[in-house]
Design a protein around this nucleic acid. Sequence first.
DNA 1: CTTGCGGCTTGATAAATGTCAATCGTTCAA
DNA 2: TTGAACGATTGACATTTATCAAGCCGCAAG
Lengths: 231, 231
Amino acid sequence: MRPEDIAAMRGLPLFRDVAETPFADLVRAGFLQRFPPGVVLINESDPADFLHVVVEGLVEMFASGGGRDTTISIVRPVGVFILAAVLNDQVYLQSARTLEKSQVLMIPAESVRTALVADAAFTRAVITELARDYRSTIKEVKNQKLRSAAERLANWLLREDDAQGGTGRIALGFEKRTLSSLLGMTPENLSRAFAALKAYGVATEGQWVHITSRGTLQHFAKPNPLIDGPE
Amino acid sequence: MRPEDIAAMRGLPLFRDVAETPFADLVRAGFLQRFPPGVVLINESDPADFLHVVVEGLVEMFASGGGRDTTISIVRPVGVFILAAVLNDQVYLQSARTLEKSQVLMIPAESVRTALVADAAFTRAVITELARDYRSTIKEVKNQKLRSAAERLANWLLREDDAQGGTGRIALGFEKRTLSSLLGMTPENLSRAFAALKAYGVATEGQWVHITSRGTLQHFAKPNPLIDGPE
DNA sequence: CTTGCGGCTTGATAAATGTCAATCGTTCAA
DNA sequence: TTGAACGATTGACATTTATCAAGCCGCAAG
């Protein structure tokens, strides 16, 4: 690993407070891989061999069942995935694939588990990360069970606008079919949801979405901090 | 707390390997409460004051939004809830209410966090529990997004049959309306899903469900270990 | 420049699910 | 014993979402 990659790794909340020695061990065991778009990094039901950290690019977590596929989340830099499977030495419940050219840091599961017992700060960071992941998944269940397709889209747009600076100009960053799967609907239904939101000031333009009146959209979306809130 | 309650608490995976002193501190700070059915124990959006352990009875975790309600899980003895909120000192994302006369062990959040730094075994158990909760929630997202209402019911029946000994005779244990909410459908739709499963050997009889031909039901349900599996 | 491919949209239709209202059955208390 | 209350079921209907098919659009390779 290059010095600047090590520095980037050090910057992650997960590793920030780890002591010198265990951190050095993790660095020695880990390696940074570059992948083109569309590469499957892990497959659900495989044993969890590596903890993955998205350093650059974009990774889609998805799962299959009954002949269908669904996107579970999109991981941006700097995000960790499949931590839970690694910790308990289980199989992956999700698959992962790159959506863009990406750089992914891979740390052997065994090293992660060793660092876990060796370093209290790492343990603490792992608990925080796990609790965060758990809570955001609970939010996703609520989102799916309590909202219609158009409501899920409207709230996603509001959250994404916030994340991109609140300018009312949103870059999708990936294909609409992926968004439709993330939101739990078909591509056709996403098109119709966008059409329905026109009445609330939402305009699409290729990979861009414009929100002309945040207040109007908010009034329709009725965002709920216990579903859409940060932390 | 009575000696036998302390022994029960000691038996939980979460506390089994905690050292004497921190365990005694937890016991001293905690208290066991008895509740009649239908009592709301916690409300979503309230700060997480106590870790709850269901020692006896049945507790429903649910959440609201947009004027609707949905059941997120049913906690049986001996199960813990809202661990994640307690650990990171956040608000609850779910509400809880008793479905039966229940006994609940309540441990102040502050004591839990103290024990977490004081005892490595407790830390390890917390990580295991959190990872388990996270993974079962991911499974629930897959269940919701990849399956129809009748499929969710069929797989729930198979899982429940297993849990109850695989005799083909399942006690619901709570009202059908609660089951419908847990499975993400209306009570009317649950009735129709049961009717549809008659063709696959499912018979309802009040609070009981009989599975006459597990193979037939399995063939319809197509259970998937990455959704319905244990751990 | 053109052509072909892939992704998106649109329309028509079907299937799944939700809503509303009426009825049935059981429980429990007067 | 009876009847009021409540949950479950059923039917009719509305809404939401999915499916299938066709056409549109932009982009990239020739």
